[in-house]
Nucleic acid binder design. Structure first.
Lengths: 144, 144
DNA sequence: TAAGATTGACGTTTCAATCTTG
DNA sequence: CAAGATTGAAACGTCAATCTTA
Protein backbone atom coordinates (compact mmCIF):
# COMPACT_ATOMS: atom_id res chain seq x y z
CA UNK A 1 0.00 0.00 0.00
CA UNK A 2 1.24 3.41 -0.95
CA UNK A 3 0.50 6.14 1.56
CA UNK A 4 -1.49 8.94 0.01
CA UNK A 5 -0.09 12.14 1.33
CA UNK A 6 -1.85 15.42 0.61
CA UNK A 7 0.24 17.89 -1.30
CA UNK A 8 0.05 20.36 1.56
CA UNK A 9 1.44 17.83 3.98
CA UNK A 10 4.41 17.00 1.81
CA UNK A 11 5.04 20.70 1.30
CA UNK A 12 4.98 21.29 5.05
CA UNK A 13 7.41 18.43 5.56
CA UNK A 14 9.78 19.83 2.97
CA UNK A 15 9.52 23.26 4.49
CA UNK A 16 10.32 21.92 7.93
CA UNK A 17 13.45 20.14 6.77
CA UNK A 18 14.61 23.06 4.70
CA UNK A 19 13.95 25.67 7.38
CA UNK A 20 15.70 23.77 10.09
CA UNK A 21 18.72 23.02 7.91
CA UNK A 22 18.97 26.69 7.02
CA UNK A 23 18.68 27.75 10.65
CA UNK A 24 21.41 25.41 11.77
CA UNK A 25 23.65 26.54 8.93
CA UNK A 26 23.21 30.17 9.88
CA UNK A 27 23.89 29.57 13.54
CA UNK A 28 26.98 27.54 12.76
CA UNK A 29 28.18 30.30 10.48
CA UNK A 30 27.67 32.91 13.20
CA UNK A 31 29.65 30.85 15.70
CA UNK A 32 32.44 30.27 13.24
CA UNK A 33 32.56 33.96 12.37
CA UNK A 34 33.36 34.65 16.01
CA UNK A 35 36.03 32.00 16.06
CA UNK A 36 33.95 29.69 18.22
CA UNK A 37 33.57 25.91 17.98
CA UNK A 38 30.51 24.23 16.47
CA UNK A 39 27.09 24.03 18.04
CA UNK A 40 27.47 20.44 19.11
CA UNK A 41 30.27 21.52 21.44
CA UNK A 42 27.96 24.03 23.03
CA UNK A 43 25.38 21.31 23.36
CA UNK A 44 27.79 19.25 25.45
CA UNK A 45 29.01 22.16 27.53
CA UNK A 46 25.51 23.37 28.30
CA UNK A 47 24.17 20.02 29.42
CA UNK A 48 27.14 19.53 31.71
CA UNK A 49 26.71 23.00 33.10
CA UNK A 50 23.02 22.40 33.74
CA UNK A 51 23.64 19.19 35.57
CA UNK A 52 23.83 19.15 39.32
CA UNK A 53 27.57 18.69 39.72
CA UNK A 54 28.90 19.78 36.38
CA UNK A 55 29.22 16.22 35.27
CA UNK A 56 27.19 13.52 33.59
CA UNK A 57 27.62 9.92 32.66
CA UNK A 58 28.28 9.30 29.03
CA UNK A 59 24.85 7.80 28.37
CA UNK A 60 23.00 10.56 30.23
CA UNK A 61 24.80 13.24 28.29
CA UNK A 62 23.89 11.49 25.05
CA UNK A 63 20.24 11.37 26.06
CA UNK A 64 20.03 15.09 26.78
CA UNK A 65 21.81 16.49 23.80
CA UNK A 66 19.91 18.42 21.19
CA UNK A 67 22.09 17.16 18.40
CA UNK A 68 22.29 13.55 19.47
CA UNK A 69 25.50 12.05 18.21
CA UNK A 70 25.82 8.38 17.63
CA UNK A 71 29.34 8.24 18.87
CA UNK A 72 30.07 10.62 21.69
CA UNK A 73 33.40 9.07 22.62
CA UNK A 74 35.15 10.76 19.74
CA UNK A 75 33.61 14.13 20.42
CA UNK A 76 34.50 13.88 24.10
CA UNK A 77 38.04 12.93 23.07
CA UNK A 78 38.45 16.11 21.08
CA UNK A 79 36.93 18.33 23.73
CA UNK A 80 39.02 16.69 26.44
CA UNK A 81 42.12 17.21 24.31
CA UNK A 82 41.22 20.90 24.32
CA UNK A 83 41.04 20.88 28.09
CA UNK A 84 37.30 21.55 28.20
CA UNK A 85 36.35 18.25 29.79
CA UNK A 86 37.78 15.55 31.96
CA UNK A 87 36.88 11.91 32.20
CA UNK A 88 36.56 10.34 35.62
CA UNK A 89 35.54 6.82 36.56
CA UNK A 90 32.14 6.31 38.20
CA UNK A 91 32.50 5.19 41.81
CA UNK A 92 30.10 2.26 41.98
CA UNK A 93 30.00 1.25 38.32
CA UNK A 94 33.34 0.29 36.88
CA UNK A 95 31.99 0.42 33.34
CA UNK A 96 30.86 4.01 33.41
CA UNK A 97 32.62 7.28 32.78
CA UNK A 98 31.77 10.67 34.18
CA UNK A 99 32.26 13.51 31.78
CA UNK A 100 33.23 16.50 33.88
CA UNK A 101 33.20 20.12 32.87
CA UNK A 102 36.52 21.86 33.49
CA UNK A 103 36.90 25.51 34.43
CA UNK A 104 37.98 26.19 30.88
CA UNK A 105 34.91 24.39 29.54
CA UNK A 106 32.56 26.40 31.72
CA UNK A 107 34.27 29.56 30.60
CA UNK A 108 33.83 28.63 26.94
CA UNK A 109 30.15 27.95 27.50
CA UNK A 110 29.72 31.41 28.99
CA UNK A 111 31.57 32.91 26.07
CA UNK A 112 29.53 31.06 23.48
CA UNK A 113 26.09 31.79 24.85
CA UNK A 114 25.84 35.48 23.90
CA UNK A 115 26.82 34.67 20.33
CA UNK A 116 24.44 31.76 20.15
CA UNK A 117 21.63 33.76 21.73
CA UNK A 118 22.13 36.61 19.29
CA UNK A 119 22.02 34.10 16.48
CA UNK A 120 18.78 32.54 17.72
CA UNK A 121 17.33 36.01 18.06
CA UNK A 122 18.33 37.11 14.59
CA UNK A 123 17.33 34.03 12.66
CA UNK A 124 14.45 32.76 14.73
CA UNK A 125 13.01 34.82 17.55
CA UNK A 126 12.94 38.18 15.81
CA UNK A 127 10.91 36.80 12.94
CA UNK A 128 8.17 35.34 15.11
CA UNK A 129 5.59 36.79 17.47
CA UNK A 130 4.23 35.19 20.62
CA UNK A 131 1.41 33.45 18.79
CA UNK A 132 3.85 31.93 16.34
CA UNK A 133 5.97 30.58 19.16
CA UNK A 134 2.90 29.15 20.85
CA UNK A 135 1.66 27.50 17.66
CA UNK A 136 5.05 26.11 16.83
CA UNK A 137 5.49 24.71 20.31
CA UNK A 138 2.08 23.09 20.23
CA UNK A 139 2.65 21.42 16.88
CA UNK A 140 6.16 20.24 17.69
CA UNK A 141 4.93 18.74 20.95
CA UNK A 142 2.70 16.43 18.95
CA UNK A 143 5.70 15.10 17.07
CA UNK A 144 7.73 14.24 20.12
CA UNK B 1 24.93 43.46 24.39
CA UNK B 2 23.51 40.13 25.35
CA UNK B 3 20.24 39.23 23.67
CA UNK B 4 17.51 38.58 26.20
CA UNK B 5 15.58 35.64 24.97
CA UNK B 6 12.36 34.65 26.75
CA UNK B 7 12.42 31.17 28.19
CA UNK B 8 9.57 30.12 25.94
CA UNK B 9 11.45 31.16 22.85
CA UNK B 10 14.55 29.21 23.76
CA UNK B 11 12.39 26.20 24.58
CA UNK B 12 10.68 26.45 21.19
CA UNK B 13 14.04 26.65 19.50
CA UNK B 14 15.30 23.59 21.32
CA UNK B 15 12.12 21.73 20.52
CA UNK B 16 12.44 22.56 16.84
CA UNK B 17 15.99 21.29 16.60
CA UNK B 18 15.27 18.18 18.58
CA UNK B 19 12.07 17.34 16.72
CA UNK B 20 13.60 17.75 13.32
CA UNK B 21 16.67 15.70 14.22
CA UNK B 22 14.45 12.94 15.54
CA UNK B 23 12.29 13.00 12.42
CA UNK B 24 15.26 12.74 10.10
CA UNK B 25 16.74 9.93 12.17
CA UNK B 26 13.51 7.96 12.00
CA UNK B 27 13.12 8.42 8.29
CA UNK B 28 16.72 7.39 7.65
CA UNK B 29 16.19 4.35 9.81
CA UNK B 30 13.07 3.37 7.87
CA UNK B 31 14.91 3.67 4.57
CA UNK B 32 17.81 1.65 5.82
CA UNK B 33 15.51 -1.01 7.21
CA UNK B 34 14.25 -1.53 3.65
CA UNK B 35 17.76 -1.70 2.30
CA UNK B 36 17.48 1.69 0.62
CA UNK B 37 20.08 4.45 0.37
CA UNK B 38 19.98 7.59 2.52
CA UNK B 39 17.56 10.46 2.18
CA UNK B 40 20.03 12.73 0.47
CA UNK B 41 20.14 10.29 -2.45
CA UNK B 42 16.39 10.52 -2.75
CA UNK B 43 16.69 14.26 -2.66
CA UNK B 44 18.91 14.19 -5.73
CA UNK B 45 16.83 11.64 -7.60
CA UNK B 46 13.59 13.49 -6.97
CA UNK B 47 14.84 16.87 -8.12
CA UNK B 48 16.18 15.35 -11.31
CA UNK B 49 12.92 13.53 -11.90
CA UNK B 50 10.93 16.70 -11.35
CA UNK B 51 13.01 18.66 -13.80
CA UNK B 52 11.86 19.05 -17.39
CA UNK B 53 14.29 16.65 -19.03
CA UNK B 54 15.44 14.51 -16.17
CA UNK B 55 18.59 16.52 -15.85
CA UNK B 56 19.89 19.58 -14.08
CA UNK B 57 23.05 21.54 -13.97
CA UNK B 58 25.17 20.99 -10.92
CA UNK B 59 24.41 24.41 -9.45
CA UNK B 60 20.67 24.15 -10.10
CA UNK B 61 20.51 20.79 -8.42
CA UNK B 62 22.35 22.19 -5.41
CA UNK B 63 19.90 25.05 -5.17
CA UNK B 64 16.84 22.82 -5.11
CA UNK B 65 17.94 20.18 -2.69
CA UNK B 66 16.32 19.90 0.69
CA UNK B 67 19.50 18.76 2.36
CA UNK B 68 21.88 21.17 0.71
CA UNK B 69 25.32 19.67 0.62
CA UNK B 70 28.34 21.83 0.37
CA UNK B 71 30.09 19.51 -2.00
CA UNK B 72 27.81 17.78 -4.44
CA UNK B 73 30.62 16.52 -6.68
CA UNK B 74 31.44 13.73 -4.26
CA UNK B 75 27.83 12.69 -3.86
CA UNK B 76 27.28 12.71 -7.60
CA UNK B 77 30.46 10.63 -7.98
CA UNK B 78 29.08 7.92 -5.73
CA UNK B 79 25.67 7.89 -7.33
CA UNK B 80 27.17 7.84 -10.80
CA UNK B 81 29.39 4.95 -9.76
CA UNK B 82 26.19 3.14 -8.87
CA UNK B 83 24.79 3.81 -12.31
CA UNK B 84 22.03 6.09 -11.07
CA UNK B 85 23.30 9.22 -12.76
CA UNK B 86 25.38 10.30 -15.69
CA UNK B 87 27.39 13.43 -16.24
CA UNK B 88 27.15 15.16 -19.61
CA UNK B 89 28.73 18.39 -20.76
CA UNK B 90 26.46 21.40 -21.24
CA UNK B 91 26.22 22.37 -24.90
CA UNK B 92 26.80 26.11 -24.78
CA UNK B 93 28.75 26.35 -21.54
CA UNK B 94 31.95 24.39 -21.49
CA UNK B 95 32.31 24.82 -17.73
CA UNK B 96 29.03 23.27 -16.79
CA UNK B 97 27.95 19.69 -16.20
CA UNK B 98 24.51 18.24 -16.63
CA UNK B 99 23.60 15.65 -14.07
CA UNK B 100 21.29 13.22 -15.85
CA UNK B 101 19.01 10.68 -14.29
CA UNK B 102 19.52 7.19 -15.66
CA UNK B 103 16.78 4.61 -16.09
CA UNK B 104 18.14 2.87 -13.03
CA UNK B 105 18.08 6.11 -11.05
CA UNK B 106 14.46 6.79 -12.00
CA UNK B 107 13.57 3.28 -10.98
CA UNK B 108 15.23 3.71 -7.61
CA UNK B 109 13.34 6.94 -7.02
CA UNK B 110 10.05 5.15 -7.69
CA UNK B 111 11.05 2.38 -5.35
CA UNK B 112 12.05 4.75 -2.57
CA UNK B 113 9.00 6.97 -2.61
CA UNK B 114 6.50 4.55 -1.05
CA UNK B 115 8.87 3.86 1.81
CA UNK B 116 9.64 7.52 2.30
CA UNK B 117 5.96 8.46 2.08
CA UNK B 118 5.00 5.85 4.63
CA UNK B 119 7.72 7.18 6.88
CA UNK B 120 6.51 10.77 6.55
CA UNK B 121 3.00 9.58 7.27
CA UNK B 122 3.96 7.59 10.33
CA UNK B 123 6.26 10.10 11.97
CA UNK B 124 4.77 13.37 10.80
CA UNK B 125 1.46 13.47 8.96
CA UNK B 126 -0.47 11.00 11.12
CA UNK B 127 0.28 12.98 14.24
CA UNK B 128 -0.98 16.29 12.91
CA UNK B 129 -4.36 17.57 11.78
CA UNK B 130 -5.06 20.12 9.06
CA UNK B 131 -4.86 23.05 11.42
CA UNK B 132 -1.49 21.91 12.67
CA UNK B 133 -0.19 21.67 9.15
CA UNK B 134 -1.51 25.12 8.36
CA UNK B 135 0.00 26.65 11.49
CA UNK B 136 3.33 24.97 10.93
CA UNK B 137 3.45 26.11 7.33
CA UNK B 138 2.62 29.67 8.29
CA UNK B 139 5.30 29.85 10.97
CA UNK B 140 7.99 28.21 8.87
CA UNK B 141 7.27 30.58 6.02
CA UNK B 142 8.29 33.45 8.28
CA UNK B 143 11.68 31.86 8.84
CA UNK B 144 12.53 31.44 5.17
C1' DT C 1 38.36 38.56 -13.19
C1' DA C 2 34.48 35.79 -12.04
C1' DA C 3 31.55 31.56 -12.45
C1' DG C 4 31.13 26.50 -12.51
C1' DA C 5 32.82 22.53 -11.00
C1' DT C 6 36.43 19.11 -9.34
C1' DT C 7 40.26 17.60 -6.38
C1' DG C 8 43.46 16.85 -2.32
C1' DA C 9 44.04 16.99 2.36
C1' DC C 10 42.10 16.74 6.42
C1' DG C 11 38.67 16.13 9.98
C1' DT C 12 34.40 13.88 11.38
C1' DT C 13 30.79 10.35 11.52
C1' DT C 14 29.28 5.73 11.24
C1' DC C 15 28.98 0.74 11.91
C1' DA C 16 30.44 -3.17 13.65
C1' DA C 17 33.63 -5.40 16.61
C1' DT C 18 35.56 -5.32 20.96
C1' DC C 19 36.59 -4.85 25.76
C1' DT C 20 35.14 -4.58 30.46
C1' DT C 21 32.06 -4.86 34.30
C1' DG C 22 27.12 -5.79 36.17
C1' DC D 1 24.31 -12.66 28.54
C1' DA D 2 23.32 -7.48 28.84
C1' DA D 3 24.85 -2.67 29.61
C1' DG D 4 28.30 0.99 29.14
C1' DA D 5 31.76 2.66 26.63
C1' DT D 6 35.79 2.69 23.32
C1' DT D 7 38.18 1.61 18.97
C1' DG D 8 39.44 0.47 13.88
C1' DA D 9 38.27 0.81 9.30
C1' DA D 10 35.76 2.85 6.00
C1' DA D 11 32.47 6.18 4.36
C1' DC D 12 31.44 10.82 4.25
C1' DG D 13 31.72 15.98 4.62
C1' DT D 14 34.40 20.31 4.50
C1' DC D 15 37.58 23.83 3.15
C1' DA D 16 40.77 25.78 0.38
C1' DA D 17 43.26 25.40 -3.81
C1' DT D 18 42.87 24.48 -8.51
C1' DC D 19 41.47 24.02 -13.23
C1' DT D 20 38.78 25.47 -17.07
C1' DT D 21 35.87 28.39 -19.65
C1' DA D 22 32.84 32.87 -19.87
Amino acid sequence: MVAKLPEKTVAAWARLIRAEQALLDRVEADLKAEGLPPLVWYDVLLELRRSAEGRLRHRDLAARMLLAKHNLSRLVDRMAADGLLERLPVEDDGRGAHICLSRKGAELQRRMWPVYARSIARHFANRLDDDDIADLTRVLAKLA
